[in-house]
Amino acid sequence: CITRVVEELGRLDGVVHAAAHWQDFRAMSDVLSSDWANTLAANITAPWALTRAALPHLQAVEDGCAVFVDCECAHTPAVFHGAFGVSKAALRAMVAGWALENPGIRLHTFDPGPMRTTMRLLGYPGHPAESYPLPEIPAEALSALLAPDAAHRAQIASQVHWASDPPPSSAP
């Protein structure tokens, strides 16, 4: 996947890890072993493997960047978030480790907040869809983290950005 991108485009400037998986929200003692394994595989192992493959290419460009979509449950444990919450906390720790080991690459965790997606509506069926913003709103904030001018900003390593936060200052 990474090799094909580089072959077709000539380089890789950034990666966004936005995929997420959860079966349902339930007590950790009720999570099936297979659901636990599948959630950790999708939410922590897959981003690790993709980052590992992308790393040499991100190091080869002036402003390599990886953004990992985060969730509030990564730093504020919530009831019934089980494997999903654990995987997001592990993701945050992994990003911090990648950042320490690779100071020349910008690595971010980004929490888009609740948004009007199928995943959110399935997880929180009692909340009206209209109460959530459309994904285009946090996508603009995410794009600011990937923008080419980000090379001129102070490095932001393993820092959480909420979709409602303004983009990092462009001052040197």
Rank of each mutant, 00 (worst) to 15 (best):
P148Q: 13
P172C: 06
P77R: 15
V31R: 03
L121K: 00
F25E: 00
T45V: 14
Q155A: 02
V69M: 06
A54K: 05
G14D: 03
V160K: 10
H21Y: 07
G97K: 12
A42W: 03
A41W: 10
A49G: 10
V15F: 14
G10K: 03
V6P: 02
A171F: 04
Q155C: 01
V16S: 09
D165S: 00
A154W: 15
D30L: 01
I44M: 04
I137N: 01
A163D: 05
W22T: 08
Q59V: 10
K88S: 02
N102T: 13
A163R: 01
E8Y: 14
A157L: 04
V69Q: 08
L58Q: 04
S170T: 14
A60D: 05
A150K: 01
A154R: 07
V15I: 13
V79F: 12
R26V: 10
I105N: 07
Q159G: 12
M115L: 05
T76L: 08
P138K: 14
P103L: 03
R153F: 15
R153Q: 14
H161T: 12
I156P: 04
L50G: 09
T76R: 09
T39F: 00
H75N: 14
G126N: 10
E7C: 15
P128T: 07
L100W: 12
C71Q: 00
H75W: 15
W36T: 00
A66S: 14
G64T: 10
P103F: 07
T45Y: 01
L100M: 06
A171E: 11
G14M: 11
L107T: 01
P133D: 05
L145G: 11
A139P: 07
C71P: 03
A42N: 09
N38C: 12
A154K: 14
V31K: 07
D35T: 11
A99Q: 11
P128A: 06
V67F: 07
V86S: 05
P135G: 09
A42I: 08
S143Y: 13
D111F: 15
